[in-house]
Amino acid sequence: MEKFSKIKAIAADLQIMNVDTDMIIPKQFLKTIKRTGLGSALFYEMRYDQKGNLIKDFVLNNDPFNKAKILISGKNFGCGSSREHAPWALLDFGIRCIIAPSFADIFYNNCFKNGILPIILDENKVKELSEIAKQKKEIEIDLVDQKILKEDNQPFDFEIESFKKECLLNGYDDIALTLKKESKINNFEQKRKNITPWLY
């Protein structure tokens, strides 16, 4: 997983509430057996018309937002299915950070497994950032200090769980981390076999 510490980039503003994972990556792209190559299908039905032509007024189709690394959106971003194809598509497009007032749980978790930082921020602050995004000005995200920096030198702080932060900063493979605890897991399993033997 690619590490995340700091990025400074153009942000794309997508002010829609309840952006669901079907919007982010529709079903026909879930047939892949790979994690890569989904960027061109990101927000497919909003980005392309029925003939497959780019829809001009969709934000990600226009320069400089087609190179955005930050996405700003509405409440409950990523609701719906557990498909990790959603963060894969965002990542493949180039998005490394999503800022919204709230996220759906499964999507939120899936982001961290792919080096994407989802930031939960007050609605007013999200609106302020969306104005900056519309002006095509860059926004800087500093994960180490947990700050969002903008032109006015009045950074926004954000919260993140320490373990998740650590994993992003170091690009950890959390399976490798867990496997270091294998003996602990085996001991637990042994105990559980005694308490609930019908499960084994």
């Binding site: 994690r35 299915s81 557990s82 498909r83 990790e84 963060p87 499964i106 978790n109 899936n110 497994k113 792919n114 373990f163 959390d174 399976i175 867990t178 496997l179 294998e182 897991i185 399993e189």
Partner: peptide
């Protein structure tokens, strides 16, 4: 009972646990 993403599927397959 709850849904998980593919990375977590791999985590459960490999470790029978989840973070």
């Amino acid at each position: 009972a709850f849904g998980i993403g593919t990375s977590e599927v791999e985590h459960v397959l490999a470790t029978q646990t989840l973070i």
